[in-house]
Simulated scan of single mutants.
Amino acid sequence: MGKRVALSWSGGKDSCMAFDLLVKQGYEVACLLTTVPKEIGRTFGHDEKTELIELQSEALSLPLHFVRCSLDRYTETFIEDLAQLKEQFQLEGIAFGDIYLDGHREWGENVADAVGLPALYPLWSKEEDSLQLLQNFIESGYKAVVIRIRLDVLDDTWLGRQLNEDFYVDIQSQTLCPMGEHGEFHTFVYDGPLFTHPIPLTHGEIITSERSKRLDIQPLIN
């Protein structure tokens, strides 16, 4: 297995945990990949501003590549960009932060195979291990805030909450995956052991869509 890898990056806790584990296992993360559908203009995974992802890449001292795709050519564009990055960074693998959803893993393995790379899943676990993974994140020293929730499982009081021990206790009273693997909630990581500096944030308005609510976080500029 090669050691120089790209990492699919959403900006949230899962991709951050994957990054941390990869480094501890001796991999060199050469670059971050974040998908940005042209129709949305924000990140695909969390509907986040691209400048916030750029601030993360700067704080992590890692190159960042936006896969700018249309929704109807999402996979094809991802493969095309990954092939170019393979040559540019001499990649020997690509890593994903998925935990236990087989369909997500199958997609990642297929796109990796299309360009001749192995796919790594450092967080891969059983569904019943999700609560322990949440605890691992909280104890890791990384700091994250909830930026998006699914309307059918959580109310907007969860928006803006920190992933801490209180969150760990309260999430267990809800009927959902404690790690939000089914999209129940999404997070933004703004500080931690591999960050060269924290990303100061301010909370803006709450934006409601058909299925979710999103907290419009902004970088705090001094």
Rank of each mutant, 00 (worst) to 15 (best):
4 R>T: 08
5 V>W: 01
6 A>M: 12
7 L>N: 02
10 S>I: 02
13 K>G: 06
14 D>I: 03
15 S>A: 10
16 C>N: 06
19 F>C: 02
20 D>F: 02
22 L>G: 03
25 Q>S: 12
30 A>S: 15
30 A>G: 10
34 T>K: 00
39 E>M: 04
40 I>E: 06
45 G>H: 04
48 E>T: 08
49 K>W: 14
50 T>R: 03
50 T>S: 03
57 S>R: 08
58 E>G: 04
63 P>M: 08
68 R>C: 12
70 S>Y: 12
72 D>M: 09
78 F>Y: 15
79 I>E: 06
85 L>V: 01
85 L>H: 00
89 F>A: 03
102 D>I: 15
103 G>M: 14
108 G>K: 07
110 N>M: 15
110 N>H: 15
113 D>I: 09
122 P>N: 08
124 W>V: 04
128 E>Q: 14
132 Q>W: 10
135 Q>Y: 10
139 E>Y: 09
143 K>W: 06
145 V>K: 03
149 I>W: 03
149 I>H: 01
150 R>L: 14
151 L>Y: 07
153 V>N: 01
155 D>E: 08
160 G>N: 04
160 G>H: 02
160 G>E: 00
161 R>E: 09
166 D>P: 00
169 V>Y: 12
172 Q>L: 15
173 S>I: 08
178 P>F: 05
194 L>N: 00
195 F>K: 04
206 I>P: 03
211 R>H: 14
211 R>K: 15
214 R>N: 05
214 R>Q: 06
215 L>E: 01
215 L>V: 07
219 P>C: 08
